[in-house]
Design a protein around this nucleic acid. Structure first.
Lengths: 214, 214
DNA sequence: GTCTATAAATAGATAGAC
DNA sequence: GTCTATCTATTTATAGAC
């Protein structure tokens, strides 16, 4: 009998009350942040009574931490999946970009919540989730290191490569709402440019950087 | 006698109560967001009574909007200053990157607040401030367009260039706190890499992109 | 597992004295 | 301009019935 906490594992099609709360909370926190998100609204959106939230989760903070944990574990898992299918350093970099982008598409709450956590210095991230986040960065560092060892990449600080990939990709998805308003304010086309163009661009930039053609 | 609202203009060394409130509120909202920021704490940090906030500002929301407005106008102004000193398209791109970075250094609340507003779809941005934000993007678009006209740049979507510049630079400054924790979790050097390296890297990447060497 | 009702704690905002 | 005191609304959280 282990004392290990039972961790939430929410299947995408799970229609139970816990899964509905989890999904409603993800959307609520993404749109309004942790402090701005209200349990009342989460309950209403999930179609349950407010007390149900406290039946399934210890507190609003615990619910939010679960969302963060699940989110980053999913990113790490997808990263491993997509990277494992690639043989070349170039392929692994492309896969890294796509993994981030696909995860952002599959979980629309991911980019906004991640931006908010960054702004807050990771205040809500528990140590285990910090380790998961560090693992994501380290995965890219390993790809870069292996590429350098194979003579394919120039040695570039992995954190610069990481920032050049993750920041623009997340920005693209997180600004979906804002770009519409900016388009109306006279920036033509801000609301309509495709994710595949962004992904392709970021991939090319990352590889150019690593190939040392700068 | 104009009916135009008197806008806040806070000098960096202003020690009046309004300026102290303004600065305390900037830090509070940067650290905790609009909903998470409390007027009580702002008053305490500013060394004034809570009622003083309402003497100077209409509401918490109005105070926050003023901060957003002042922040983006400052960025736009610095962009114009630094761009005006440059003659070549390359120089103007470099100046754009530096303007964003210098502004982020001068106003530490800028990157976190901007990330939060993005996450929130710009919910707190009034139309005038949206126009200012759009103007920032448009300034870069003009630099790119002029560079293309001068035969120096390949035609790249200005929004891709914008994302490739603003996102990594803001990410660098906004993650200062988080990078410390990630460094402890085993990503060596995450807490110590210099802003000048980030700026130089982003400048090089942006110019490589625009020169079409990809 | 699910709901009603309510407790307990804050938070934003204001009235009014100095 | 500045402060004390207070009002009102909201919000997290729980007790307890079904």
């Amino acid at each position: 009998m282990s004392k290990t906490k039972r961790l939430v594992k929410i299947a995408p099609d799970d229609s139970g009350s816990k899964a509905r709360i989890f999904r409603a909370a993800s959307a609520e926190f993404a749109a309004r942040g942790f402090a701005g998100g209200h349990v009342d609204r989460i309950a209403a959106a999930a179609g349950v009574n407010k007390a149900m939230i406290y039946y399934h989760f210890k507190s609003k903070a615990a619910l939010y931490r679960e969302i963060l944990r699940e989110m980053f574990e999913a990113v790490a898992a997808r990263l491993d999946e997509m990277s494992a299918r690639q043989r070349t350093p170039d392929g692994k970099i492309r896969a890294f970009v796509e993994a981030i982008a696909h995860e952002a598409e599959a979980r629309p709450h991911f980019p906004p919540i991640w931006f908010r956590e960054i702004a807050e210095g990771g205040a809500h991230l528990d140590p285990a989730t910090i380790a998961t986040v560090a693992g994501i960065v380290r995965r890219l560092a390993v790809i870069v290191r292996d590429g350098v060892a194979a003579g394919r990449f120039k040695p570039v600080d992995p954190l610069l490569v990481h920032g050049g990939i993750v920041a623009p990709v997340l920005l693209y998805y997180a600004t979906a709402g804002l770009r519409k308003r900016i388009a109306k304010a006279g920036v033509t086309g801000a609301d309509r440019f495709a994710s595949r163009d962004v992904i392709a661009h970021v991939q090319r930039v990352a590889l150019t950087t690593l190939h040392g053609r700068m």
